[in-house]
Nucleic acid binder design. Structure first.
Length: 111
DNA sequence: TTGCTGACCGACG
DNA sequence: CCGTCGGCCAGCA
């Protein structure tokens, strides 16, 4: 892998690789990049994804609890939840029920 | 340019 | 159990 890309670019690369109907956590992506403490940057990268022309499935990235913490940044509505629901993800009260089942760990799946 | 903030996470008291 | 703090990096006033 090339390390010349910025942190954000690396985050996008991983997020774009998330399979349909699967989700991952900020910490998992951060850990895959080598810095689990940089989970905040992953979330910030999602915010920056608005500026990028590429399609970033940010709705497939949630926090460690499987909670849709970033839904408020997703158009200000339940768009994030709707997208996940359309992918077969079970959600209740902004939380992914089968999080353990659909969790996609880049460190394991991608490698 | 400096400094604050942010869609997180883990540790500590 | 719950509140607080540090760490990581980039964007913005």
């Amino acid at each position: 892998m090339e390390n010349n890309d910025s942190f954000f670019q690396r985050v996008f690369e991983v997020v774009k690789l998330i399979p349909y109907g699967r989700v991952t956590s900020y910490g998992a992506v951060a850990a895959f990049l080598g810095s689990r403490s940089s989970a905040r940057m992953v979330g910030w990268a999602m915010n920056a994804s608005h500026s990028y022309h590429e399609n970033i499935p940010a709705h497939r990235v949630v926090n460690r609890n499987g909670l849709l913490t970033g839904k408020r940044h997703f158009g200000g509505s339940d768009v994030m939840m709707e997208l996940l629901l359309s992918e077969g993800v079970q959600i209740e009260n902004d939380k992914i029920l089968n999080f353990d089942q659909i969790f996609w760990d880049p460190a394991k799946e991608l490698l």
